[in-house]
Lab assay of single mutants.
Amino acid sequence: RTAFSSEQLARLKREFNENRYLTERRRQQLSSELGLNEAQIKIWFQNKRA
Results as ranks from 00 to 15, higher is better:
L36K: 01
E18W: 06
S31Q: 05
L9E: 12
Q29V: 08
S31D: 00
L34E: 01
R20I: 09
L22M: 05
K48G: 05
R27W: 09
L12A: 00
E15A: 12
E24M: 10
E38I: 07
L36P: 00
G35P: 00
L34R: 00
T23Y: 03
E7F: 08
R14C: 12
Q40Y: 09
N37R: 08
S32I: 14
Q28E: 08
K13S: 13
Y21N: 07
L34D: 00
R1Q: 14
R49Q: 09
R49W: 12
R49F: 09
S6M: 09
Q28A: 10
R20S: 12
E15S: 04
S6Q: 13
E18C: 12
Y21M: 07
E24V: 14
Q29K: 08
R27E: 07
N47H: 11
Q40P: 02
Q29A: 11
L9C: 11
E38P: 12
I43K: 11
L12C: 03
A10I: 07
E33R: 03
G35S: 06
Q28M: 10
N47Q: 13
E33F: 03
R26E: 06
T2P: 14
S5H: 04
Q29W: 08
E33V: 05
F45L: 02
L34H: 01
T2V: 12
A10D: 11
L9H: 05
K13E: 15
A3W: 14
R25C: 08
S6N: 10
N47S: 10
F4K: 02
L36M: 07
E18L: 10
Q28Y: 08
R11S: 06
E15K: 01
L30M: 04
L30I: 07
W44D: 01
N17Q: 13
R27T: 15
Q8M: 05
E15G: 02
I43E: 15
Q40A: 14
A3R: 13
N17H: 10
R11C: 05
I41N: 00
R26C: 04
Q8D: 05
L36D: 00
G35L: 05
R26N: 04
G35K: 06
Y21I: 10
F16I: 03
F16A: 02
Q29D: 07
N19R: 07
L9P: 00
L34F: 02
F16Q: 02
R1M: 14
F45P: 00
N37F: 07
R49C: 09
Q29C: 07
R25V: 12
Q29N: 07
R14Q: 14
F45A: 01
I43Y: 11
E38Y: 04
T2A: 09
R11Q: 06
Q46C: 11
Q8A: 06
